[in-house]
């Protein structure tokens, strides 16, 4: 008697959870679509920048311009970790945090003094709990990151690299391959590793205004900034993808549970009816007897 009621209560509770996870899945799917569009829209700019830089770059420039310097040995570096502000996205933040931790450990083992910057509430909470010192914590970057956000993250760091205070800047973010595959990735934004080797441009006999070197030193910070912008945009899309997958799994699990519980409930109900019938027939047999 009370068993059937218990089962009914569980079914109802799972149904309402299912409704929530299903809704979250739908919301994440629609946000993912828009985030994917932003990732796609960012591609032409990045491709053009990379093309121009690779055509302007010449290894001998590295000594003349601070932003091109390639430090022989790392002494101080900065690590920027991008996580999300919200949870319920499966292993999304866990994977990013794990990668950041192993990278921190690796750099420190090599004797590098690492400055740690964290974006996103999930990462901040984790490292606060572990009492890991953080040079900056930011929760104000939404799921629609703008160029302005990228600028505010990286612009304070670029001059410090140029002055020699920092020898490297790494970013850990979720690379958006597609909605299902978003592996945590480490990207070294500075020193710049020029995309492809320098050739091409000078062969075209460009007119340069003012000069190839000046253009390169103006364009390189744009390139660095854009790399950070892309990391933010890709992470935002990856977060929605991860949430969608996690919520889809939760919804499927709920469906499965509801199915088994409904079966159990029907069995229990049937058993109860059978038992009542036996009692009634038993009773009338006895009366007739």
């Amino acid at each position: 008697m009370s068993k059937t009621r218990d089962i009914r209560r569980r079914i109802r509770s799972i149904q309402s959870t299912r409704q929530i996870t299903h809704t979250m899945e739908m919301v994440a799917a629609s946000k993912l679509r828009r985030a994917q569009d932003r990732v796609r829209a960012a591609r032409p700019y990045a491709a053009k920048l990379a093309e121009v830089i690779s055509s302007l770059f010449a290894p001998e420039l590295a000594e003349k311009y601070p932003i091109l310097r390639q430090p022989a040995k790392l002494r101080r570096s900065a690590l920027v970790l991008i996580t999300s502000n919200r949870g319920l996205a499966g292993g999304f933040n866990v994977n990013l945090i794990r990668m950041a931790r192993s990278l921190l450990g690796e750099l420190r083992d090599d004797g590098v003094d690492v400055e740690f910057h964290v974006i996103g509430r999930k990462g901040i909470n984790f490292f606060q709990f572990r009492r890991e010192p953080m040079a900056s914590r930011r929760q104000d970057i939404t799921d629609r990151p703008s160029m302005e956000d990228a600028r505010s993250v990286i612009d304070p760091l670029i001059p410090r690299f140029e002055s020699g205070e920092l020898d490297a800047i790494d970013v850990v973010y979720a690379h958006f391959k597609n909605a299902l595959s978003t592996p945590p990735t480490r990207m070294r934004v500075l020193p710049v590793s020029p995309p492809g080797e320098g050739r091409g441009a000078r062969a075209h006999n460009y007119l340069f205004e003012p000069s190839a070197e000046e253009i390169l030193t103006t364009v390189l910070p744009l390139y660095v900034r854009n790399a950070v912008y892309r990391a933010l945009v890709e992470s935002a899309a990856a977060e929605q993808g991860a949430r969608m997958t996690a919520m889809k799994n939760a919804t499927d699990n709920a469906d499965e549970l509801i199915k088994t519980l409904t079966l159990q409930y029907n069995k229990a109900r049937q058993a109860q009816i059978t038992q009542e019938l036996t009692e009634i027939t038993g009773g009338s047999e006895a009366l007739r007897g």
Binding site: A201, H204, Y206, L207, F208, E209, P210, E214, T218
Partner: peptide, 14 residues
Amino acid sequence: EIGILRDHAPLMAL
């Protein structure tokens, strides 16, 4: 300002 028409020479300008 720089004005550009068809068949302009290869140019890169800030």
